[in-house]
Each structure stands twice: as C-alpha cells, then as structure tokens.
C-alpha cells in the first residue's frame, strides 16, 4: 500500500474520530435543553486542533515505522493528491454557502459553526476516500 494511501486512511479515522468525540460531548451536555444553548466552541476548537496534531503525529510515526524512503512520493502521488483535494474542496464550498445562507437568515452562531465544522469533516473524508479509490482503481486521469 502506498504511503499516501495509508495516510488517507489515517485522515479518515482521525477526522471521523475527532468529530465523533465532539458530537458525543456536545450532545451529552444538551440534556433536555435546546441544543443551540450548549457550550460548544471550546470542544469544537479542541477537537479540530487535536485532529490536526493527531494527523501530523500519525504521519511522522508511519514515516519512521516504514523505514528509509517510506514517505517517498512521485508525480503519480502528486496527481492523485491534486484530484482528491479538488473533490474535497467542493464540500468546503458547499459548507461555506450553507453558512452564508444561515448567516443571512440570522440563525444562531451554533448552527453556523457546526455547519462549517461538518463541511470540514465531510471534505476530509470525501477527499481521503477519493484518494484511496484513485490508488486502488485508477481512473483519475481523463483522456
């Protein structure tokens, strides 16, 4: 398995794991009250920060465990990375548009922040999934 493919699997696990922790914490605090009244900002920032750090640490650990040259990449890796990032960015744009509409509608900050966070997570998962499929099946080149 290519180093970048392993890295994509790690990103899926880290992104979904961090978001699951966030959801469990926020929903756990809600109780019977309105969800939008829950203190969410600290947990949101900590889980985003934690996911970034966990991703970097896992990347370094894989490079060390793989030995010399394990994290070597070439032009195929760069092409796959570009295509998968572009696919993932489409979700970020959708999230930004959703946040814009929610802001115009004067929805509470809770919903706007959560829409953006969900878009980040879905973008990361979709981008990583696209990367894995490109490595396994090919087909990312158009002729």
């Amino acid at each position: 398995m290519a180093f970048e493919e392993k890295s994509a699997w790690v990103m899926i696990v880290v992104s979904v794991g961090a978001y699951t922790i966030y959801l469990a914490t926020v929903l756990g605090r809600a109780g019977d009250g309105p969800l939008a009244d829950v203190a969410y900002a600290g947990t949101l920032l900590w889980t985003i920060g934690g996911a970034i750090v966990a991703g970097i640490v896992a990347h370094i650990a894989m490079a060390i465990a793989g030995g010399h040259g394990a994290d070597r990449t070439d032009e195929r890796d760069r092409e796959i990375n570009q295509v998968s990032e572009r696919i993932g960015q489409s979700i970020v744009i959708i999230g930004a548009l959703a946040a814009l509409i929610m802001a115009i509608a004067e929805l509470r900050h809770f919903w706007i922040a959560n829409a953006v966070y969900l878009a980040f997570v879905l973008s990361s998962v979709l981008s990583s999934f696209a990367k894995i499929m490109a490595y396994r099946k090919g087909g990312f080149q158009t002729w």
Partner: peptide, 22 residues
C-alpha cells in the same frame, strides 16, 4: 526511474498512464 514501486505496479497493470517524461 525515480518513482515509487507502487507507481511501477500501477503502470504495469494499466491503472496509470505515466507522463511523457517518465
């Protein structure tokens, strides 16, 4: 060639078309 082994495997299996330079 200066690429990863996975890239050679992908080319051999027809899953990747290399650049003209490669």
């Amino acid at each position: 060639v200066g690429v990863t082994r996975q890239t050679i495997i992908a080319i051999e299996q027809g899953r990747y078309s290399p650049s003209l330079e490669m």
